[in-house]
């Protein structure tokens, strides 16, 4: 099996291309995804390979564009709709939340809505409050949607392909700072299972549950702490809905400590859900320290690079917090 090094963006592009090659129903829609290649060059040159009928530039019209994609999905096509920034999905909430998510249930199971929404998200690009949000927990709150968030090029490709195969609406959150990271990616078509977390680093002293770019920051913190003799286990959540409770519960039973690290606003976020899940599970009895959440600050993302940096968890803060988690206790 051939494995090459690709960037996160290239891995997604390869997934899109492979899906379009094998299934004529698959097509791409979005703003400036054609000759421009997408705001983050994810679709790149695909329009030259597949033509304008399958790599469709839409007007700047998120409600209409996303809704047309939902309608096409119900009627038998397999659209992949790119929001230029996931923030712009707020303009299309009606079609995502009221229509795509509920159509199957409302209609008694008579239709499926096989649509993929690609959601470039996250801060760190100096684009300020309306281009930097992490809204995955919002969508994770809606039964009928599936929400995934890859952290590596390999999973980016595998989750995009799994999302395209999936008969239900899937939102793929792509942290913008990850687009340029590189990693090994198999050339074949493969699927990363939706709903399965993965342990990125084995450890015995504490469990970190992180997603997207926070996985990388947590791994960096874990390496620093290893030099101090502290052994951190890092779980890459990968899927927000459905969430892989079993992997997290088993890990916490082993390490007896839990930290949830995510970029979305801390309050009512992913960490709240994971914390509550542990509190409700048999792992609660194993805890040797209070559960810790490190999330985004309770603020819109600011423009100033100094402020932007402190608005979301960074490696130094994570390292300190994890040290305290392990050294502290109740």
């Amino acid at each position: 099996m051939s494995v090459r090094e690709l960037s996160f963006a290239q891995a997604i592009q390869e997934a899109l291309a492979q899906a379009m090659e094998v299934d004529p129903r698959v097509f791409l829609m979005g703003e400036d995804i054609g000759v421009y290649g997408g705001a983050f060059q994810v679709t790149g040159d695909l329009v030259h390979r597949f033509g304008e009928d399958r790599v469709m530039d839409t007007p700047i019209s998120e409600l209409g564009g996303a809704g047309v994609a939902v309608g096409a999905a119900i009627a038998g096509s397999r659209p992949v709709y790119e929001f230029q920034f996931s923030d712009f999905s707020t303009l299309a909430m009606e079609q995502i939340v009221n229509q795509a998510a509920k159509m199957r249930y409302m209609l008694g199971g008579k239709v499926s809505v096989p649509i993929v929404f690609r959601m470039p998200c996250g801060s760190g690009t100096g684009a300020a409050a309306q281009h930097s949000q992490s809204l995955e927990a919002w969508f994770g709150h809606v039964p009928g949607l599936k929400v995934v968030e890859p952290s590596t090029p390999e999973d980016a490709k595998g989750l995009i392909l799994a999302a395209i195969d999936d008969p239900d609406p899937v939102l793929v959150f792509e942290h913008k700072l990850l687009y340029k990271i590189k990693g090994n990616v198999p050339e074949i078509m493969y699927r990363t299972p939706i709903g399965k977390a993965v342990v990125r680093r084995n450890g015995k002293d504490a469990t970190v549950v992180a997603s997207a770019i926070m996985v990388h920051k947590a791994l960096e913190a874990a390496e620093a702490l290893a030099k101090e003799g502290i052994d951190i286990e890092v779980i890459d959540l990968r899927s927000i809905r459905p969430i892989d409770g079993a992997t997290i519960i088993e890990s916490v039973k082993k390490t007896t400590r839990l930290a949830c690290i995510y970029e979305g606003v801390k309050t009512l976020g992913i960490g709240a859900e994971i914390s509550a899940m542990i509190a409700e599970s048999e792992a609660f009895d194993y805890l040797d320290a209070p559960i810790m959440r490190l999330g985004g600050a309770e603020t819109p993302i600011p423009y100033s690079p100094i402020l932007e940096k402190v608005a979301v968890p960074q490696v130094d803060g994570i390292t300190d917090a994890l040290r305290n988690l392990v050294k502290g206790g109740f």
Binding site: R25, F27, D53, L63, G64, A66, G67, V68, A69, V70, G71, A72, A73, I74, A75, G76, S77, P79, E94, Q95, N98, Q99
Partner: peptide
């Protein structure tokens, strides 16, 4: 207004077929 984009999308699927 919920059905307006959906019908438009269904028409796109027809055109694709």
């Amino acid at each position: 207004g919920g059905g307006l984009p959906l019908a438009t999308g269904a028409a796109l699927a027809i055109k694709q077929r």
